[in-house]
Computed example of a mutant assay.
Amino acid sequence: MSQEQEARQEPEATRRDSDSTESSHANRGWWNRNADDYQIEHGTFLGDDRFVWGPEGLDEVEAELLGPPESLKDLDVLEIGAGAAQCSRWLTRQGARPVALDLSHRQLQHALRIGDDVPLVEADAGALPFRDGSFDLACSAYGAIPFVADPVRVFREVRRVLRPGGRWVFSVTHPIRWAFPDEPGPEGLSVASSYFDRTPYVEQDEQGRAMYVEHHRTVGDRVRDVVAGGFRLVDLVEPEWPAWNTQEWGGWSPLRGNLIPGSAIFVCVRD
């Protein structure tokens, strides 16, 4: 294959609308194709049984956003967008009973490669295959939420499967990042587009078929979505970049992390 042909096969990055069906199909395919590379590149940082909320490296051991570790014993926990189930494996070590759910079959195969001590479910976050009130807690570390066209639908599903008083904690790319280029160096420090432009980021093939989709919501949008989903927001955490973390992860880096937030973690309660 010529270099010209290979170049034509590279997906085109654009901003355009993408509904729930297209987004789900595109992202399932993307994660199935890229799960191996993702785990090779980030597996050491994530560990086999750590609960890391994002590229900054904020660890649930320190953050206790789900509650003190000793309070997790005997709780039923749903992890959404679990990837290789690293977070669920940590929850198991605390005595919880997690279920790891992901859209990608290949990501869940990596979960089995690491260990078979966590129940795995392949499903879409917008249609959770569980009975009402099945879980005490739900969590998602950069899983599912950035990639769905209708987050309120997901939140309502999470609320449905949670018991009263249950927590729902999820992390996403900080919305302010959408105004900046997704670059770890100095070129990623200048505003390049409107923060208020909610048009999804789409990578598509030559026929215009979406291969990857990510959706932008402002901070205000996220708060309103949480409320519309039936939750009460009790905290919004914006992790600072720690001095020990010298790695770059895509557009996340010490340079940018010391100046602007990279992640937002929403702590919600089902009353």
Results as ranks from 00 to 15, higher is better:
residue 117 D to L: 08
residue 37 D to M: 13
residue 230 G to D: 04
residue 218 T to I: 02
residue 160 R to F: 09
residue 63 A to H: 13
residue 206 E to R: 07
residue 34 N to S: 12
residue 52 V to C: 13
residue 99 V to A: 07
residue 94 Q to V: 02
residue 268 C to W: 00
residue 68 P to L: 10
residue 55 P to E: 03
residue 159 R to I: 04
residue 182 D to Q: 07
residue 60 E to C: 00
residue 239 P to C: 04
residue 270 R to L: 07
residue 128 L to W: 10
residue 13 A to K: 11
residue 126 G to Y: 01
residue 189 L to G: 12
residue 161 V to G: 00
residue 96 A to F: 13
residue 21 T to G: 05
residue 4 E to A: 10
residue 108 L to G: 01
residue 242 P to V: 08
residue 99 V to S: 05
residue 148 V to C: 05
residue 235 D to F: 08
residue 132 D to Q: 15
residue 16 R to D: 05
residue 4 E to I: 08
residue 156 R to F: 10
residue 2 S to L: 12
residue 62 E to A: 08
residue 210 A to L: 11
residue 247 Q to D: 10
residue 73 K to W: 09
residue 73 K to P: 04
residue 231 F to D: 02
residue 267 V to S: 13
residue 4 E to P: 12
residue 72 L to S: 01
residue 56 E to P: 14
residue 81 G to S: 07
residue 42 H to V: 09
residue 261 P to M: 12
residue 6 E to R: 13
residue 73 K to V: 15
residue 41 E to F: 14
residue 183 E to N: 15
residue 172 V to M: 08
residue 105 H to R: 10
residue 186 P to F: 03
residue 99 V to G: 11
residue 99 V to Q: 09
residue 129 P to E: 06
residue 80 I to L: 15
residue 127 A to L: 13
residue 174 H to K: 05
residue 50 R to M: 15
residue 35 A to S: 13
residue 109 Q to P: 06
residue 31 W to Q: 06
residue 85 A to G: 02
residue 18 S to P: 13
residue 206 E to I: 07
residue 29 G to V: 12
